[in-house]
């Protein structure tokens, strides 16, 4: 689960990690050689030089030209070629029939699966599920300030800049959950704007997205029904959407299938009953300054709405 760039699980981060090791070992060798030279320079036995003539300095000058100009120029040129190769390996178009359009906002991620045929589209938030082994096209946009999409074990980061669409691909070569976090300072709760990329086998992915396309499940129990009433009447529809009800706003995460997500509050809290209750009852305590207001609820109402929300699988 640790989001280490050095523990890649896909070709994007994999190619970059290889580049890192090359840069690292080249730097290590240069460091050792240079420090050895410095050490020798410091500790060697002295010959008393007076003001050296240009003749006497010819040798040292040549050494400087070699060590400071020729050697770095050659090494850096070589590295640069490798850099270009790596760049081409990690960029380019994706190969999925859908693009995941991710719209950043303070401090959450709106995630829209877009197909050529709009009836296949789906929408979720703060979680990106992808099929294993495919280059998934990602389109990055922002509705307020600059954010940055970074999932270290899969790919390099790319900014979400208002007014433009940036595109990358991400690919996971094994199933798993990969943590990502916003990597461009976006204000008060920048530290609490995370997300998860969940890679699944292709058939499981198709099942998952088919479920995401469906409207919300109808409430099964009394608690859930009461919870739905609380949800619809206490202001939630002003910002949130639950497809299948009249709640269709998208100023906040889409909740149609929130019950099946791994986390809430943008990767900040695990999606459990306790955490959901804590979040709904007082978001300002967990993420002060976030745009979800604190709406006072009776304890019974709270329990009901939590039941309802968790039922939206």
């Amino acid at each position: 689960m640790n989001p280490s760039t050095l523990d890649p699980r896909g070709p994007g981060a994999g190619a970059i990690a290889e580049l890192w090791w090359v840069l690292f070992y080249v730097s290590l060798i240069i460091t050792v050689l240079t420090l050895a030279a410095l050490g020798y320079a410091i500790f060697r036995r002295r010959v008393d030089w007076r003001l050296p003539s240009d003749e006497q300095d010819r040798g040292p000058t040549r050494a400087i030209v070699f060590a400071g100009i020729l050697f770095p120029a050659i090494v850096i040129s070589g590295l640069f070629i490798y850099v270009v190769i790596t760049y081409r390996a990690i960029t380019g178009p994706g190969d999925t029939p859908f693009t995941v359009r991710i719209i950043g906002a303070k401090w959450w991620w709106d995630v829209i699966y877009e197909y050529d045929s709009p009836i296949l589209n789906a929408r979720t938030a703060n979680e990106v599920r992808i099929p294993v082994g495919r280059r998934v096209s990602i389109a990055l946009e922002s509705r307020d300030v600059i954010h940055s999409f970074w999932v270290p074990r899969l790919q390099g980061k790319m900014d979400l800049v208002p007014g433009r669409t940036n595109r990358i691909w991400i690919q996971a070569d094994s199933p798993g959950v990969y943590r990502g976090q916003c990597a461009e300072f976006c204000g008060l709760q920048h530290a609490r704007m995370a997300f998860y990329v969940v890679a699944m086998e292709e058939n499981e992915f198709e099942e998952w997205i088919a479920a995401q396309r469906q409207p919300a499940a109808a409430p099964q129990s009394d608690a859930e029904r009461r919870g739905r009433d609380v949800y619809l009447t206490r202001g939630c529809p002003l910002c949130h959407a639950v497809r299948g009800t009249e709640s269709l706003a998208h100023a906040a995460p889409d909740l149609t299938h929130v019950g099946s997500r791994l986390s809430i509050a943008a990767g900040v809290l695990p999606n459990t009953r306790g955490h959901m209750a804590g979040w709904i009852s007082n978001p300002q305590q967990i993420k002060p300054g976030s745009y979800m207001p604190r709406i006072p609820l009776e304890p019974a109402e709270l329990q009901d709405i939590v039941s309802y929300v968790l039922s939206l699988r």
Partner: peptide, 15 residues
């Protein structure tokens, strides 16, 4: 020099 390399910087920029 390392962070000058674009792909590597894409991992470590803003980190």
């Amino acid at each position: 020099v390392m962070v000058g390399a674009v792909p590597f910087d894409w991992q470590v920029h803003d980190s």
